[in-house]
Design a protein around this nucleic acid. Structure first.
Lengths: 332, 332
DNA sequence: TAAGCCATTGTAAACGTTTGTGTAAAGTGC
DNA sequence: GCACTTTACACAAACGTTTACAATGGCTTA
């Protein structure tokens, strides 16, 4: 149905080889005269290149696949923007796939659609791959890199923030303002990222001579609901004066629940969020955060895929952004 | 490098045709014995199918491309979930592309990467295609459908809410609570969607015997900033008692700016948002909204692509969701 | 004028699949 | 034991490109 280079060749009275060369602009391989003939024929036929066919023979693609764990996590968009920016600089195209939230079957589906097609590389944004899917990924010949997630033992390529530092600095920011009874809400200790954040949090407290109680840490999956549940668990009479939200969403959950319990932020309760997406400045009061550089992560991810030798791990910087959710505690 | 069906054929001692049929599970075309041989060989070689090659010969693909206008608009994720759900039911896969915000070059890039490859159809989420890119899209043989956007004259296939009704119902909801001086903030009158919302808004006022002043309508691009700017234009001394935000983001912008101007929501100013994404229940007070059924839009979009005959336009339902940002105005 | 070179173009193989057609062997009914 | 059907497989063409190699012809140079 659609026009092919064969049709163009016939119409222009040349061979398909010449058409291919003209269209690919392999100059010094054709004359001006034929070039114009070919181009005229191409536009007349409304030719659309079939890249799949071309990729089949050249065995090389220019699309990067970004696999995202869920539509719910909002930081993904910042990473994707970084990916796009860097990719476009190098004439690469980006496609995005959603892999669902801890849904092995959907992960597999997303992975399959990219592995089975020619892609130049795969970026996995904060996705906890099920073991069988990891095997799948490794079995394919496609280069890959995890973003915004880290791993313990296995030597997987990843780019992320220093999660220990994230936990440490969020906690320390509160300590510096005089807080000593500080909670950590909505963190997931099943994975490396969460474990590191807990470790950083604990160390910051210990460095200030504080021994955290077990109930100060409320586990969860970084979601709004997890933040809410954590705050419910702390209760209106909590001894805590400050809470670190494991994510922006969790922090907002904490804040809204605190309000429902009659606690004012930051008057009664200070909050530091982890992530620092635009959500932090949308809510009232705006949330002070330990902000990750997601955009940079995206850029680094593309660079990692492009580099031959695989420098396996990389850490992107974080910074504390002061907004309105932390108050200085007067020492009593 | 990677194993092909040729390798499997050699290892299993059969022809590639047989391998293909076994792998595609075209039963009644092979015996149990060969099937097991082939499967054994396939796993031994770590075979990964090259779908691009298969699609080349079958001339038919099972991936749907969703083109999104920007990473910024948050409702997209709900549409995408709808798309995924419906697509997966029919063994279709979904890839997502970002087309940038009113950036013709990036639109073109996104469009090209999908048109040049075998895709089964293209869904365009709220993207205002530049004229040249629309021509491009129409020139390709790929079926397509616009989502969450509508058009005036041209007969383009689209699925969206009734934007006139959206404007009407949002305004009417405020009128019913006794408001008579009502603004509309952040709406874009350059496109059909925005124009319809303005028309609905105006009609609702007129039906209540109210003649809207020109300055009640503040134009913008549906963004947080647009909402903020609109509220700044209204000013602290505004005669308005209520405002319709052209989107969730715009409504939040209005609300936060109002607070900065010393106005309390909803005590001094009532707000109705348009869209009704989860953002509405994240902020404080939670925003009353005219909610669109984005999930349903995604489902309908996939169905539209799958149906041969193209029933060009479809309207998805909306509903008013009462939350906390509107107060009843006592008649004086 | 022959040899050599360069610019331009064509020929054909290859990429990894699917599938229509052909065919040998095995099974069926009489 | 014959004609027939069925089963199970192989052969080869096709999809739309790219590209190595060959071929052509004109031009330069000695």
């Amino acid at each position: 149905m659609a026009a092919t280079i064969k049709d163009i060749a016939k119409l222009a009275g040349v061979s398909t080889a010449t058409v291919s060369r003209v269209l690919a602009n392999k100059s010094a391989f054709f004359s001006e005269a034929t070039a114009t003939k070919v181009h005229a024929a191409a536009t007349e036929l409304g030719y659309q290149k079939n890249t799949a066919a071309a990729e089949l023979v050249t065995r090389h693609s220019n699309v990067i696949a970004a696999v995202v764990n869920s539509t719910k996590t909002n930081f993904a968009s910042q990473i994707i923007e970084g990916i796009q920016a860097e990719a476009h600089q190098h004439e690469l195209n980006v496609i995005i796939l959603y892999a669902g939230d801890a849904d092995s079957a959907q992960q597999r589906r997303a992975l399959m659609t990219v592995i089975e097609r020619p892609v130049m590389g795969i970026l996995l944004l904060s996705v906890d791959l099920a073991p069988e899917n990891l095997t799948l990924l490794q079995g394919s010949q496609v280069p890959y890199c995890f973003l915004s997630i880290s791993f313990d033992g296995e030597r997987l390529p990843y780019i992320t923030s220093d999660d220990w530092q994230v936990g440490y600095q969020a906690t320390q920011a509160l300590i510096k303002q005089g807080h000593r009874r500080i909670g950590l809400a909505g963190v997931d200790r099943d994975f490396h990222t969460g474990r590191q954040r807990v470790l950083g949090y604990t160390q910051a407290l210990q460095d200030a001579g504080i021994t955290p109680k077990a109930e100060w840490i409320q586990l969860g999956n970084y979601s709004y609901d997890a933040g809410q549940a954590a705050m419910q668990a702390y209760g209106a009479q909590t001894e805590l004066t400050a809470i670190v939200g494991a994510s922006d969403m969790a922090a907002i959950g904490v804040m809204n629940q605190a309000r429902d319990l009659g606690l004012l932020v930051p008057a009664d309760l200070s909050i530091v969020a982890i992530d620092g997406t635009e959500l932090c400045s949308l809510v009232q009061p705006q949330l002070t955060s330990v902000s990750q550089n997601f955009y940079e992560m995206g850029i680094a991810g593309v660079q990692q895929l492009r580099s031959i030798e695989t420098l396996p791990q990389k850490i992107t910087p974080i910074k504390l952004v002061n907004r309105q959710s932390v108050r200085m505690l007067s020492p009593e």
